[in-house]
Each structure stands twice: as structure tokens, then as C-alpha cells.
Design a protein around this nucleic acid. Structure first.
Length: 875
RNA sequence: GCGCUGGUGGCGGAAUUGGUAGACGCGCUAGGUUGAGGGCCUAGUGGCCUUAAAAGGCCGUGGAGGUUCAAGUCCUCUCCAGCGCACCA
């Protein structure tokens, strides 16, 4: 039986409309995507993907925003005639599940699956056009077995290797901590001072792809420039010179290698500095207790680069000397806490004359400062650092190199060093290999078996997947896998003797580095991907938070290239177009108690006090009426208690209003500051639209006006209608600006609501206008448009309608309005024939009241005419 | 610290190619409508100044300077905020 037309009611009831629309979509399988061999239908494919969520519990506003943007693109492209795929899955491994397990005693698996069920229900209630038949979760063995399989292929190809890496170690809980579990240098649960510790780990050789990852950024015109710039900086290709400083140690001749991009300043080197982890530091520390203590102090320090960069520059001499490779001077070697072991050679040449960090270091420890570059005669004083000291210039005080510019100096010095076998030009990357080992339970097991006799043995393909037990509950003291003999104890695949299974799991970034390929063929159980990937990939439009601009997007590009080189059906680049949505922010309110403890209050519980102009004067807590302080605006988070639950919004206003508000509030790429109040605008707009359609339909439907002669009074309406169609189509298809889509439709609605003409031709124009508005709005508010379309065209499905076309004839205008300026200031407007040329416009403007009033007979110096826009008279 | 992005009314934002700053919406003010409330409708709403009024003038896009007939938009310097910095995802 046909469901009753919900438009039989004069009022808009979102709960009824949304249930009906969703049932209709489910019943008709509206969002199933199938491969269409080219030639069959001729429809191009469009793979629209939003970054899959981590199942943290409930949807948050960032999810609603992300998936609404993706759904708008999906539905727009469907109506434009594309064969669209929009899948959804779950980035289901990760740390929060273990934290929840510790808090509640529930295994991470159960917590995760429960969250997936909740969030899936929420996504469905928002009416997203998702093909749920392709749903996948990375914590299922059917998915992560291919992580393991690909890991083994990479191991075979030398793209995976083992070496030691530095981790945060909590000495009380005897466990490795993630960076976010270290707060002010202490473990989050124990409060113990965190130590650095070196442990063996598996690395993926992403640096082998550095050159391609950098070069092919050029082939991504559909990516935001800023993301490409960030990736290029992150990969960090720098051209420089590798320089060796010879020294003698224990009778043997050795070389201290440094890398520099400023070889032209080599003659200004007054010291060398090595990282605390450098072998030379370790050697010197053996015979120097104070130095040993300093090295230890550095090693205990922070692991994160951001923290490292903010440390006070500290150092200590090693007592060792190296020889300057050109002039033979003795140069002292220091240990410096600002030297990174992971970059270049873990050692730098200190040129305080022309490097700001070296300058600060030299000042602090009284080391000599020797200027060797002249920057166009700008003054130099060793008293204080000046920004131009680091500029390129010509060599001075540099012996035979005097007078050379940067390029010539680098070439000459590199050539001289090469002759002595003490250096050469070199390219260095900032990008480091990707450490994927995690000493945690809830992740993909690394498929390696440790055998006393055979060493590290890969698990044979036939034994994959190495299944993760799902019933363990971590307690914060190390990895529970290591305490589970049924997992650890196994046989060596080579010799058959008793052996131990690797208990580290993979970084969850591995899971998310290829899921977009798997969506093409989630049911394939013989291989990670199959030929269906060739139909769907690459992703035509990828959408996700700007916070993923570097890591996730770089790792995904890397994995896609690795899979391509493995002979799998993968393209060179995974994402053709990328939209990075801004974060959702909210106000932060707090009170500082007498004890100094800070309590945060949710903005929903706070009332803003305003004066009669609406100017804000303060804020109070609703429950007790006493003031609270504002801490500005920040990302929605549990710790600042400033989250907004989208569920409340959906229940109060309906999914369409929630979607409409999210799209209207700001452009997708901008940060969005939450405001409860302004949702009333979009809510009222849908109510008004409903009423307009209801009233029109109640008076009887008529065929939509389809072009032809029109009375002059109705021409402006059709002009606005077709201008709106053109603008909205451009905003959807090219600009990705949905806030102006909504604004334009609202503006046009205001015009329609003012129409009083009830003639039959006016009713036909009205029918045309209402139909177009419903079609234009349907990607953003699909449920209400589904219902309104049935009211306007009984029996038809809005999703199967083609996108409205602009009628060029309606856009023709005889007269246009131009702006009149005198000396660049707005002085009036005039109407002129569209066909008027420059000369005629100038003549009309000079004779116009608004112009003559301000020129006062003064001599006209110049007249600027911009046809179609303005005339500016300069006197 | 380094890299990236942004800053426009009381608020979210618009201004797409250097060409009318403030579209659209919220809030606020006044009036109307409904038995009340919600809702709905109408008008006004950047600041300062002149005027009885009509109308008009000046200023105005974080700050300071510059280019141009014309700058929110381009250039230089500067301040502030957000995001990322490799084990959060």
C-alpha cells in the first residue's frame, strides 16, 4: 500500500516525513552502488568518500558536519547523472577502547561493537545515502588479515625492517605510553616521571617513496594548496652538502659527519654539536661524569618535537676536537640538546655568525662568533642577533672563497671537499621512516614469530590471519597479549620448535591507509583487492578534517603506491579531489574554585547576559545564577566539557534542519563556531517552504512554466529563479560553498513569498519555481524535499529527477544598473541599456545629476568605464 | 620553536576576476495576529555627525605603512587566534 501523502497536513512534522523517506529509501535499495561496465549506461562513476569514524561512542558535531558534506556531494552528483558510491566503515582499533576497558572492565571488542551499533543507528537517522552493504570494520579478521599479508609482502621487498626506536616509558606501570598519555612529562595514570626507552620496532620504508610522494603532489590539482604545501614541507627535501670533520680517536682516524644547507658558511664554523644519542657523545661520556649526567638528562627529556623545540638551548663540551676540513683549525665538539639524532647525521656544524640557534648557543657558552657572509653591506655586530644575518650574500673572511655568492660558494666548497674525500653534495629528507610497532593489545597483530634458533620468522600466508583474541581486558600495566600464553606460545614455522609470537600490534594508521580500496570489494576473501578496484578507484572526492592534512593522507598515498608496485589493482594516487573541512568549535566556560581547581561548564548550561543592544555583558550558570568565566573558543572536547550532542538537535528539530544548519553556518573548509540560537533560522525556513508548497498544492497543481512569453511583471521572478539555479549549481559543483547555496535559496524564497499574482500564468511560474527550489535543496535536506516533491509531482521520486537547467532566455536583460563614482567614491546609480558602449556610458555618466553635483564644473582628468559595472569620474 | 591557515557589525557569515562592504540567517527594537504560550506577519538595525523632516556627509573589513582612478581583495612590516609537529584518531 502507498504510504499516505504526509503533505495532507498543513504543518511540517519532520519526524513523520523523515521516517517515511528513510523507509522509502530502504525499501527501494536507493543507495546500492553497482559497477557498471563502460558502454552499458554511459554513466561516469563517482566515488565519494568521507573519512571513516573512530567508533568512540556517539556521533559528535564534527562527524555530522563531515558526513553531511559528503552526502551533499553524493546526492548532487547522483542528480547530475553519475553512478555514485558512498560507503561507510569503522576505524575500529585504537587506544580509547583500551582506556574504556580499564575504566569499565569491558573488553575493547565489546565496547567497540556496541559503539558501532549506536553510531550506525545515528548515521541512519541522518538519512545519509550510504551503501551499507559495503560496511567494514578494521577490527574484523577479514579486514586486518590483509594488513598482515601486505606487511609480509613489504617485508619481502625490504620495505619493512627492524631497528630500535624511542618510546615513552612509565616506570611504575611498566608500560609504553602514547604521547597523549604523557602530561607535563608524567604518566597520566601514575604521575611518574616518564623516561625515554629504546626498544626494537618494525619500520616501513616510506623514505624510499619520498621522491615520488613529493613529485606527484604536482599531479593533484584537486587538492587544497595548503595541504600540498604542508606535505611538501613535511617530506622536506633539502639540497645541501655532507661535510666530514676528521678526528683521531684511540689511534684511529675517524670522521664526524654533518649535513648543512649552508655550506657557504663553512669558514665561519666555530664549533660542532652532536645529539645526545650520537656515538661520539656516548664515547666522551664514558670518561666524563658530568657529561654523562648531561647526556642522561637529554635522553630523559621529551620525545615530541614540539616540546623539544621549546627547550632552553643547553650544551656541554665533550673535550674532543675535530679538524676543519678546509683550513685545518681545531674545532671543539659539544653535545647540544637542540640537535636531532633523527635528522641528517645527528650532528651539526656550529656557525653562530649566520644561524640563529647557533648564535644563541655561542652567546650562552662564550664561543667565538665569526661573520663570513656580507649581505649587501648591512651592518653586523655580535652583540645581538639580527634577522638578516641568516640571509644569502657573498663570502668574506673566507680565504679563497671571498666574493663568491651562495651558489658559487656551495659548488666550489663541495668540489674542494670531494677532492679531499671529506664531503659532497647531498639531498636530505626531513621525512623519517614510519615506525608501526605499538606495544598495545587492540590492534592488528604483527605476523612474526620469534624462534631461538631461526630468529624472526614471518608467519606463512596459509596461517593468516593471526587472530587477535577479543576477550582480554587491559589493566594499564603493559600489553595483555604478552600475558596470554595461548596467543604467545606457538611453533616456529621453519624448524617446528617452540617459539614466541610477536605481541606488538600495528599503528592504527595502517588500518586507515587502504580501507578506501577495500570498499570496492569488501567481500573478496582471496586477496586484499580485486578488479572492482579498477572501476571505482581513485576516490573522486575525499572529505575529512584538516587535522589529517599530513599523517593519514601521506600514509594513504604511500600505501597506495606500495600496493600498485605489488601488482595489485591500485592507482598511483588514491584521492583525486580533497576537501578538508574545518573543526567544530564551541565556547569554553569555567569557574576557578578556592582550591585552585578548575571546573568546566557546558555552554548549554550557561546563560549569556546582554544589554539592550544585544552586547554581551556576562555569563551565568543556569542552575545557580552565579557568574562563570569565559575561556574563549576551542575544539569540542570532553576535557573542556564544551561538546554538543547532535542527537538532541536531531530529536528537537529533525535531521534535515540539523543538516541544513550545519551547511548554512559556514563554508565547509572554515572552522565552525557552534551557536545553538541560530538554528532557528534554518528551522523556520523549512517550515515556511513547507507552507508555501502546501498552499500552492492546495489550490491545485498546474504544469510548470517551461519558457515563452511572459508579462513584464513576472519576468523579474523568472530572472531571479534562473540566476539562482545557475549560482546554486556553481556553488555545489565547483565552489563547494553550501552556505551560499542555502542563502541563495532563502533569498529566492523571500521573493516567492511576496508574490501576490494568482493568474494562471503566475501559478505556472510558481509551480516552476517551487519545483526548482525543492530540487536545489534536496541534496542538503533530502527528507523534506522527498515529501515536498510528492506534493508537487505526485508519484515521482525526487532522487530520480534530473538537476534543474537554467533557461538562458530568462536571464536576458535589456537594461542594467551601473554604479557612479567620483574620485573613487560611490555617488549614485544609473540605468543604462545593456548594449551601451564605453563612449555612451561615459556620456550618460557625465550628464548624470549624481556626478555633476560632485564635479562642480571642475576639469575631468580621467573617466574609467567598466562595462556592466561602473563609471568612475576623476576630477 | 618550526610549518600551514585565518582575522569583516552584538553573533555566524556574504562580497567568485582589484570595481556598490555587510547578501542570507541569528540576535535586538517597535508594531500586528492568536484565548495564553509557542508560532506567524510587518518595519527597523555598522559607527559618528548635520537636519524639524526629507535627505545628506564623514569614518569603517585586527594594527601601521604602500601601490592604484578604485583595496576586505595586491605588496611590506606587525599583533592575535586555530590546526599539525611523527605513539590521539
Amino acid at each position: 500500500m502507498l504510504s499516505p501523502n504526509p503533505l495532507m497536513q498543513p504543518q511540517y512534522h519532520p519526524e513523520i516525513v523523515e521516517r517515511e523517506a528513510q523507509e522509502h529509501w530502504d525499501r527501494t535499495g536507493a543507495f546500492r552502488a553497482t559497477e557498471e561496465p563502460p558502454g552499458k549506461s554511459g554513466r561516469p562513476k563517482f566515488y565519494c568518500l568521507s573519512m571513516f569514524p573512530y567508533p568512540s561512542g556517539k556521533l559528535h558535531m564534527g562527524h555530522v558536519r563531515n558526513y553531511t558534506i559528503g552526502d551533499v556531494m553524493t546526492r548532487f552528483h547522483r542528480m547530475r547523472g553519475f553512478n555514485v558510491l558512498q560507503p561507510m566503515g569503522w576505524d575500529a582499533f585504537g587506544l580509547p577502547a583500551e582506556n574504556a576497558a580499564m575504566a569499565n572492565g569491558v573488553p575493547p571488542a565489546k565496547w567497540t561493537y556496541d559503539n558501532i551499533a549506536t553510531m550506525k543507528r545515528q548515521l541512519r537517522s541522518l538519512g545519509f545515502a550510504i551503501d551499507w552493504k559495503r560496511e567494514l570494520a578494521t577490527c574484523s579478521p577479514g579486514y586486518y588479515r590483509w594488513n598482515q599479508w601486505l606487511f609480509l609482502r613489504m617485508l619481502e621487498r625490504g620495505l619493512v625492517y627492524k631497528k630500535t626506536g624511542v618510546v615513552n616509558w612509565d616506570p611504575v606501570d611498566q608500560t609504553v605510553l602514547a604521547n597523549e598519555q604523557v602530561i607535563d612529562g608524567r604518566g597520566w595514570r601514575t604521575g611518574a616521571l616518564v623516561e625515554k626507552r629504546e626498544i626494537p620496532m618494525y619500520y616501513m620504508r616510506i623514505t624510499a617513496y619520498a621522491e615520488e610522494l613529493l613529485a606527484s603532489l604536482e599531479e593533484l590539482p584537486g587538492w587544497p594548496e595548503r595541504v600540498k604545501t604542508m606535505q611538501a614541507n613535511w617530506i622536506g627535501k633539502s639540497h645541501g652538502v655532507n661535510i666530514a670533520f676528521p678526528y683521531e680517536l684511540g689511534g684511529g682516524k675517524k670522521l664526524l659527519r654533518v649535513f648543512t644547507t649552508r655550506a657557504d658558511t663553512l669558514m665561519g664554523t666555530t664549533f660542532c654539536a652532536v645529539a645526545a644519542e650520537h656515538p661520539l657523545a656516548a664515547h666522551a661520556a664514558r670518561s666524563n661524569e658530568k657529561l654523562a649526567a648531561f647526556v642522561e638528562e637529554c635522553k630523559r627529556g621529551p620525545v615530541m618535537e614540539a616540546d623539544l623545540a621549546q627547550l632552553d638551548k643547553k650544551g656541554m663540551p665533550t673535550g674532543l676536537f675535530v679538524t676543519h676540513p678546509i683550513n685545518g683549525e681545531k674545532i671543539e665538539v659539544w653535545v647540544g640538546n637542540y640537535v636531532l639524532m633523527a635528522y641528517g647525521e645527528g650532528a651539526v656544524m656550529g656557525v653562530p655568525g649566520h644561524d640563529e640557534r647557533d648564535f644563541a648557543f655561542a652567546k650562552k657558552y662564550g664561543l667565538p662568533i665569526k661573520p663570513v657572509i656580507d649581505v649587501g653591506g648591512k651592518p653586523y655586530s655580535t652583540d645581538a642577533w639580527q634577522p638578516w644575518y641568516a640571509d644569502y650574500g657573498r663570502c668574506v673572511n673566507s680565504g679563497k672563497y671571498d666574493g663568491l655568492d651562495y651558489r658559487a660558494a656551495v659548488e666550489t666548497i663541495a668540489a674542494d671537499l670531494k677532492k679531499k674525500a671529506l664531503g659532497d653534495k647531498q639531498i636530505t629528507w626531513r621525512l623519517r621512516d614510519w615506525g608501526i610497532s605499538r606495544q598495545r593489545y587492540w590492534g592488528t597483530p604483527i605476523p612474526i614469530i620469534h624462534c631461538d634458533g631461526c630468529g624472526d620468522v614471518p608467519v606463512p600466508d596459509a596461517e593468516l590471519p593471526v587472530v587477535l583474541p577479543e576477550n582480554l581486558v587491559p589493566d594499564g600495566t603493559g600489553n595483555p597479549l604478552a600475558k596470554t600464553p595461548s596467543f604467545v606460545d606457538c611453533k616456529c614455522p621453519k624448524c617446528g620448535k617452540a617459539a614466541k609470537r610477536e605481541t606488538d600490534t600495528m599503528d592504527t594508521f595502517v588500518d586507515s591507509s587502504w580501507y578506501f580500496l577495500r570498499f570496492a570489494c569488501p567481500d573478496q576473501d582471496k586477496a586484499p583487492v580485486d578488479e572492482r578496484v579498477q572501476y571505482w578507484m581513485p576516490v573522486d572526492q575525499y572529505i575529512g578534517g584538516i587535522e589529517h592534512a599530513i599523517l593519514h593522507l601521506l600514509y594513504s598515498r604511500f600505501w597506495t603506491k606500495v600496493m600498485r608496485d605489488q601488482g595489485l589493482a591500485a592507482p598511483s594516487e588514491p584521492f583525486t579531489r580533497l576537501l578538508t573541512q574545518g573543526m567544530v568549535l564551541n565556547e569554553i566556560f569555567y569557574r576557578k574554585e578556592a582550591s585552585g581547581r578548575i571546573t568546566y561548564y557546558n555552554p548549554a548550561d550557561v546563560e549569556i547576559r546582554r544589554d539592550d543592544k544585544g552586547q554581551r555583558v556576562g555569563a551565568v550558570l543556569r542552575s545557580d545564577g552565579k557568574p562563570v568565566e569565559s575561556d574563549g573558543i576551542g575544539t569540542m572536547s570532553k576535557s573542556k566539557n564544551n561538546g554538543v550532542d547532535p542527537q538532541d538537535l536531531i530529536e528537537k528539530y529533525g535531521a534535515d534542519t540539523a543538516r541544513l544548519y550545519m551547511m548554512f553556518a559556514s563554508p565547509p573548509e572554515d572552522t565552525l563556531v557552534w551557536s545553538d540560537a541560530s538554528i532557528e533560522g534554518p528551522a523556520g525556513f523549512l517550515r515556511r517552504l513547507w507552507r508555501e508548497v502546501y498552499e500552492h498544492a492546495s489550490d491545485g497543481l498546474v504544469p510548470a512554466f517551461a519558457g515563452g512569453e511572459l508579462p513584464a511583471s513576472l519576468r523579474p521572478v523568472r530572472f531571479e529563479l534562473h540566476s539562482t539555479i545557475a549560482k546554486v549549481t556553481d556553488d555545489y559543483g565547483r565552489r563547494n560553498k553550501y552556505n551560499t547555496v542555502v542563502a541563495s535559496i532563502m533569498e529566492f524564497m523571500n521573493l516567492i513569498a511576496k508574490m501576490t499574482d494568482t493568474s494562471s500564468v503566475a501559478r505556472a511560474v510558481r509551480q516552476e519555481a517551487l519545483q526548482a527550489m525543492v530540487l536545489l535543496l534536496s541534496p542538503i535536506a533530502p527528507h523534506v524535499c522527498h515529501a515536498l516533491w510528492q506534493a508537487l509531482k505526485p508519484g515521482a521520486d525526487v532522487m530520480r529527477e534530473p538537476w534543474p537547467k537554467t533557461d538562458e532566455a530568462a536571464l536576458v536583460q535589456d537594461e542594467i544598473e551601473l554604479v557612479l563614482q567620483v574620485n573613487g567614491k560611490l555617488r549614485g546609480h544609473m540605468r543604462a541599456p545593456k548594449s551601451a558602449g564605453r563612449g555612451e556610458l561615459e556620456r550618460l555618466a557625465l550628464a548624470h545629476d549624481a556626478v555633476t553635483r560632485f564635479t562642480n564644473g571642475q576639469a575631468v582628468k580621467k573617466v574609467v568605464v567598466v562595462p556592466g559595472r561602473l563609471v568612475n569620474v576623476v576630477v
